[in-house]
Simulated scan of single mutants.
Amino acid sequence: MEEIFSLKGRRALVTGGSRGIGAAVCELFARHGAQLAVFHFDDEANAQLLQKKVSGQGCDLQSFNCDVADEGAVSRAVAEVRRLLGGIDIVVNCAGIGGDKPFPEISIGDWDRMLNVHLRGTFLVTRAFFPEMLERRWGRIINVASQLAYKGAPGLAHYCAAKAGVVGFTRALSYEGAPRNVMVNAIAPGPVETDLLMGLSEDWRAMKQAQLPVGRFGRVEEIAPTALLLASEAGAFYSGQTLSPNGGDVML
């Protein structure tokens, strides 16, 4: 059974990989044999901590400081990834930011930054590696969305719009990838105990926890196995799907 989840010989890039869900994905991928690269944004301390954790599993993780919303920064980081790893087989677009505000208080800057990190960043990083995946006839693109793409939430109009865009992007790109065995899928977690969640107001978190059928927030290690499924041969028949480990917050 373990063989079907093996990532031996696969090279994976995880954006936002130095903490939260991204770091949990890296640790799980390392345990299953992947070579790893991580993009983080001014989070060198956590990136080094992650390197130490996975090195004990025989994984030599490469980390790069990269704002995924910046085309030039992405191009430079991608060039280094190619130099060190030769290419990428699996991309996990996990970089994200949070922050709740009533809609009238959302500035143009707030709106642009939210969409740029979540949606533009997903586009830029995917675009860098998608053509070579098509050429090799094997690849996995895993985009981290949110259950709020479906449900919405007060104070998060900009976040919900960005994540809904990620879901739409995933579905559209899957039509281009699947014929060449490049599977594009998404994960839409419910609220998970991360720095992003803790950055929201206490009132918002209390309201959200009260809505959850399971009565608690998720843990990052409960989300990472979904990424492993979609990255491995166990997920070879998933295309254009959005899987939702969300504690019952949205039932589709």
Rank of each mutant, 00 (worst) to 15 (best):
E3F: 15
I4L: 14
I4Y: 09
S6I: 07
L7A: 08
L7S: 07
L7Q: 07
R11V: 10
R11K: 15
L13K: 03
V14F: 06
S18G: 15
G20M: 03
G22W: 03
V25T: 10
L28S: 07
D43Y: 05
D43T: 02
D43K: 09
D43F: 08
E44A: 11
E44F: 11
A45Q: 15
Q48S: 14
K52N: 11
K52C: 10
S55A: 15
S55C: 12
G56F: 07
Q57W: 11
G58N: 14
D60W: 14
D60V: 14
D60I: 13
S63N: 09
S63G: 08
D67R: 04
D67A: 07
V68A: 04
D70G: 07
R76H: 14
A77M: 10
V81P: 01
V81Y: 02
R82Q: 14
I88C: 02
I88L: 02
I88E: 00
I88H: 00
I90V: 13
V92S: 07
I97E: 02
G98C: 12
D100F: 11
K101W: 13
K101I: 09
F103S: 11
F103I: 10
E105Y: 08
I108M: 08
G109C: 06
D110L: 04
W111A: 01
R113I: 01
M114D: 00
M114Q: 03
N116H: 03
H118P: 00
G121W: 01
F123I: 06
F123G: 00
L124C: 02
L124F: 02
V125K: 01
V125D: 01
T126Q: 12
T126A: 14
R127Q: 15
A128G: 05
F129Y: 10
E132K: 06
E132R: 05
E132H: 07
E135M: 15
W138M: 11
G139C: 10
G139D: 03
R140L: 09
R140D: 05
I142K: 04
N143P: 08
N143A: 06
Q147A: 04
L148H: 06
K151G: 06
G152C: 10
A153P: 02
P154C: 08
G155T: 11
A157S: 15
H158L: 10
A162P: 00
A164G: 13
V166R: 01
R171T: 09
S174Q: 05
E176F: 14
A178P: 05
A178V: 13
N181W: 08
N181D: 14
N181P: 03
N181V: 03
V182T: 08
V192G: 01
E193A: 04
E193M: 06
M198G: 10
G199C: 08
E202L: 13
E202P: 12
R205Y: 06
R205C: 07
K208P: 00
K208S: 00
Q209H: 04
Q209R: 14
P213M: 04
R216P: 02
F217Q: 00
G218W: 04
G218Y: 05
V220W: 07
A224N: 11
L228I: 09
A234V: 13
S239C: 15
Q241W: 08
S244D: 07
N246S: 03
G247W: 00
D249C: 05
D249K: 03
V250N: 09
